[in-house]
Structure formats: structure tokens, C-alpha cells
Design a protein around this nucleic acid. Structure first.
Length: 507
RNA sequence: GGCCCCGUCGUCUAGCUUGGUUUAGGACGCUAGGUUUUCAUCCUAGUAACACGGGUUCGAAUCCCGUCGGGGUCACCA
């Protein structure tokens, strides 16, 4: 039988990194076994389900590269894939449950139930339904329904038995049925609650393995019970440990950034998140840590998943991101960095005049970019600038702080120019030499610029006397790329201009 | 509180199935040093753990029991 797994988020919030990990493990499990990965939107709760969250989930799933075989916007044989559109199916099964007497209507009011619950908790017992409406006669049920009394639908659960299942991660897990009681299946004859809808859909969609978070472990016996009442084939379950916050509790919004889109906006690469997430509870068994999705598709194994929860460590994520940034094709990296530069208003796209405004989706229209002070940057030039900074970036958004001086005019401070205890006239002399050298370069190539500058630097007992003022004058910062690289990338006009400006403040 | 699950460096983990090859390995972080005009990269070193107690055994991180600790869950939410 073909392996079929599903990822079933409810659109009640932005796509959470914990959900992303569940989706990832399902995806890898399916790919490894050449099975299907299905996406199902669990939006039965109309109050809490929001369309924009569904869109957020879809968009970020795709951003992570977790393509599904069946799901919304990509209907397959077992659709629809949104629970809000599956009412007919649920109705059919609810009726069947009622007809076969596996389930019954319960007329107890919420207030009544709430009182019972409080009493149970006081006594230190597990709160569960008393079974009051279970043995109503068919006549009485009929009468009360006809009277228009409101009711919910409960499953009959035997008291004595226990339920066991073999969890793919944890091994044998056992629950006593008497702890569960007759739980509510549906709000009415056509409105299923989570456990019912889930069990029905897993069956209807021919799911073979349910892989989800540990927080669902106590739902599992309920879903098995429902399945048995409906003669469904039993599924295999696997419950993954939760992602923890630094205080070891379940990671949630109050701990800071938890949604995939937040990490995306900050400048994490999708492959970094994938790599980091898979390492939270899984390892290949040797010391390798750098993984891409397609490598994982071959190497992942459920057997190597840990049982214990793992703390989400942002420092480690950052480190993994630097690794992936370094190994990213410079073309792609540049394209990814440009939006950050635009967002910070360091760069503006220029369009060819006859094509402005550009048609949606048209390609190759953006020919170049313009800095705030009016200098033009081709994509090729930007590639070189980004390449020079990719070892200094932990995340893409940092490009705007690290390389800002390329794109705006800079303010130079006299103390910044000073290397150790150099006097002003020494500094002026050093900068003069730089101006001279750069002015005499005929062939403005990186190697030429570096060679000429280095030759001069080597004449000094301390190369810093020449190189530090140069670099400071070009960058306006105490931390930057190297002077040769900056000079070359700035071009002769801008580089010499900045040096002359620096010299002025020394006089 | 009931039920379920978990417990190796601060954090992510390898080792546990099949006890000895472990002075418990790697990574992140942190510290120090090297390379370097600065920053970053890179390189080297250091730091730090088997929750505790009892068994079983010639021998236990590894097997068993207990204790403690942590988490999840107990809805007409999902």
C-alpha cells in the first residue's frame, strides 16, 4: 500500500515554526517512501479560522519548498481538502454512528456539565461525562428532539477496556478508557468536532500514517475509538516531541518570533530553517550537520528521531544560516539581498523609461538601481558587492548595516581616520598618496587596484598607517570590508572623491 | 491533581537496541591565541554533561526498580 501522510494545520494563526517542523517530517517521510504528502486545512471552527492565515500557511509551506501532492489549490482524488467544504461527508458518518447506536444525542446543558466538571476536579478526579443521556429510550430522544431541545452527539465509550497503540517514535502507549468517557463527537448532526472530522478525513483520504505533535497524543485513543466504531482500518501513529522555548515550555508567541514569515522577513534562507528544524530531534548518526532538502529526502529516517523536546536555539539557527548563505549561488544571494536595500531606501530600482510603470510579472525590466546620492548600480556590480560581504552576514537583513556605505554619502570623523597615534599631517600625507595612486590607475581592475595600493602599503613599517586611513575614508566606519575591495567597487570617481573629502577635514 | 510522555555539556546532539573499544565524541555559544590595516571569514586550543539513589554484573551513560525534575493534556478549540 502506498504511504500517504498528511499535514493538517488549522488556520487560526500564522504558520508556526513548530508546525513547519511537523510538515517537514511528514514531507520527508513521504518522499523517503515514495508516498504522497497531503495538505488538509482544518477549518471546522468558523469563528477562529481566518483566510489570511490559510494563505500564510500555503505561502510559507511553498517558500520552504515543501510541495504537497494533494491539497487546496491543487485538488486531487480525495478532495476537497478544506474541512469547511466536507460537510456532506461528515453528515453521512454522523448519521451512520447514530443509526448503529454507537453514538447518541446528549441534551445536558453546558451549565450542568460545567458544575459536574468542577466537582470532579475538586475531588481530584478526571472530569468526564456522567453518561446521563446515554440510556434514554428512543422514544424519549425522539420526543425531546421534536420539542426542539438542543443536543450534542456523544460516542459511547466502554468503561473497562484500555486502548493501546504502537507509536512510531515512542513505542507502546496505553490509555485507560475509563479516563475518557463519552466524549462529544459533534455539535449537532452536521457539525463535527476536531476528533471526528480528523478520523473521517484520515480514512477518506486513505492516510496510512499520522505524524503530528506530541500535544495530540491524548487525542489518539479518541480517534482510534471513532475509527473502530466506523470500521475504519487502523492507522499508524507517530508523535513528535514539541519545540521548546528557552524556559523549556512549549514555544509560543510570548517567547518572541515563532512564525515562519517572521524568520523569512528577517533574512533567513528557507534551507536554513529546514536544516535547523530537522536537527531539532533528528541527527544522521554521524557528525554531519549541513543538510539541504533533497539530501534529507534520501537520508531522513524516522527511527533516528528523538523522544525528548528540543529548545529552539536562535544562535544555532543563525550559525546554520551563515553556512547556507556562504554556499548560496551569488546570483540568487544578490537577488535576495536587493529587497532589503530597497526597503531601507539605500537603493531604488530604475526602469527603462518607455516601460514605466512595469507590467506585472514582466522580466528584465529592472535594468539597474540607483542609490540615494544618485549613483547607478548594475546587477553585476551589486553581485560583486554582495559577494564581498557574504562572509559578514548572519542573515540577509544585515546587508543594510554592513554595506550601507556603498550606497550613500558618508560622514567622516577625524578620529576615525587616525591610526594609532598618527599626527594630522601624517594622515594627510597618507591620504594624498592614496589619491595619487588611485588617480594613476589606467586599468580599473580589482587586481590592479590592489597591487598598486599594496605596493605603497609595503613601504611603511606599519601598513596600518597607510591602509587604515584609506579604509576609514572610503567606508566611514571602523568595521568594513577591506580597502582594496572597497576602492575597486566604488570606482575611481567615487573613491577619489571620498578621499578628497576626508583630506579636507584634516586641513 | 488524574492521565500520558520525557530526562547525556548552558543549548542541539552521538553513544543506549546487542553492557567493556569512552580519559563520554561532534556542533552552537563563550574564553584565549594565530592569520589580518579594521570587522568578518579561516585555523588552533580551552570551557562544560551521563538528574539522584538503589540493585543486576568482574564491569553500567548503556539493563531493572524507585525517587526527583521537566513537559504535554484534561472544551460543544484544533
Amino acid at each position: 500500500m502506498k504511504t500517504r501522510v498528511r499535514f493538517a494545520p488549522s488556520p487560526t494563526g500564522s504558520f508556526h515554526v513548530g508546525s513547519a517542523k511537523i510538515a517537514l517530517i511528514n514531507y520527508l517521510f513521504a518522499r523517503k517512501r515514495e508516498g504522497d504528502f497531503i495538505l488538509r486545512i482544518e477549518d471546522t471552527d468558523k469563528e477562529r479560522s481566518v483566510k489570511k492565515y490559510e494563505e500564510n500557511i500555503l505561502e510559507n509551506l511553498s517558500w520552504l519548498g515543501l510541495e504537497y501532492d494533494e491539497g487546496p489549490e491543487k485538488e486531487g482524488k480525495f478532495g476537497p481538502y478544506r474541512q469547511s467544504r466536507r460537510g456532506e461527508t461528515y453528515k453521512k458518518y454522523i448519521n451512520k454512528l447514530m443509526e448503529t447506536e454507537k453514538a447518541y444525542p446528549c441534551f445536558c446543558s453546558r451549565e450542568e456539565l460545567e458544575k459536574e466538571r468542577e466537582k470532579a476536579i475538586e475531588k481530584g478526579e478526571a472530569p468526564k461525562y456522567s453518561g446521563k443521556c446515554r440510556d434514554l429510550t428512543p422514544e424519549e430522544r425522539k420526543k425531546r428532539i421534536e420539542n426542539g431541545e438542543k443536543f450534542v452527539i456523544r460516542l459511547k465509550v466502554k468503561d473497562e477496556d484500555k486502548i493501546e497503540f504502537e507509536d512510531m517514535i515512542r513505542g507502546k502507549v496505553t490509555f485507560e478508557l475509563r479516563e475518557i468517557g463519552d466524549f462529544v463527537l459533534a455539535k449537532d448532526e452536521k457539525t463535527p468536532l476536531y476528533n471526528l472530522a480528523c478520523a473521517i478525513d484520515d480514512h477518506e483520504m486513505k492516510i496510512t500514517h499520522v505524524i503530528r505533535g506530541e500535544d495530540h497524543i491524548s487525542n489518539t485513543p479518541k480517534q482510534i475509538l471513532i475509527g473502530r466504531s466506523l470500521n475504519f482500518e487502523e492507522l499508524k501513529y507517530g508523535h513528535l516531541p514539541l519545540i521548546l522555548a528557552p524556559d523549556k515550555s512549549k514555544l509560543s508567541k510570548r517567547h518572541g518570533a515563532v512564525s515562519v514569515s517572521e524568520y523569512r522577513e528577517e533574512g533567513f534562507l528557507p534551507e536554513s530553517l529546514i536544516n535547523f528544524l530537522v536537527l531539532l530531534g533528528w541527527s544522521p548518526g554521524d557528525n554531519r550537520e549541513f543538510f539541504t532538502l533533497d539530501k534529507l529526502e534520501r537520508e531522513f529516517s524516522m527511527k533516528r528521531c528523538k523522544k525528548s523536546g528540543a529548545v529552539f536555539n536562535e544562535k544555532k539557527l543563525l550559525h546554520i544560516n551563515t553556512l547556507h548563505i556562504k554556499s548560496t549561488e551569488i546570483e540568487r544571494l544578490t537577488s535576495l539581498c536587493i529587497p532589503y536595500l530597497i526597503r531601507e531606501n539605500l537603493l531604488n530600482p530604475r526602469y527603462e523609461s518607455d516601460q514605466y510603470p512595469p507590467a506585472m510579472g514582466a522580466r528584465g525590466i529592472k535594468t539597474s538601481y540607483e542609490s540615494r546620492d544618485g549613483r547607478i548600480f548594475s546587477f553585476e556590480l551589486l553581485k560583486k558587492i554582495i559577494d564581498e560581504h557574504k562572509d559578514r552576514m548572519k542573515k540577509l537583513s544585515e546587508i543594510t548595516e554592513i554595506a550601507d556605505y556603498f550606497f550613500k554619502s558618508i560622514e567622516i570623523d577625524i578620529d576615525l581616520l587616525r591610526w594609532k597615534k598618527m599626527k594630522n599631517d601624517e594622515l594627510a600625507d597618507s591620504i594624498d598618496k592614496s589619491i595619487n595612486i588611485l588617480s594613476n590607475i589606467k586599468n580599473w581592475e580589482k587586481e590592479e587596484v590592489e597591487k598598486a595600493l599594496l605596493e605603497e602599503a609595503n613601504r611603511y613599517d606599519d601598513r596600518g598607517k597607510f591602509l587604515w586611513p584609506l579604509r576609514a575614508a572610503l567606508s566611514g566606519k571602523d568595521e568594513s570590508a577591506g580597502p582594496f575591495e572597497i576602492a575597486y567597487l566604488l570606482g575611481p570617481k567615487e573613491a577619489i572623491g571620498r578621499l578628497k573629502k576626508a583630506k579636507k577635514i584634516l586641513l
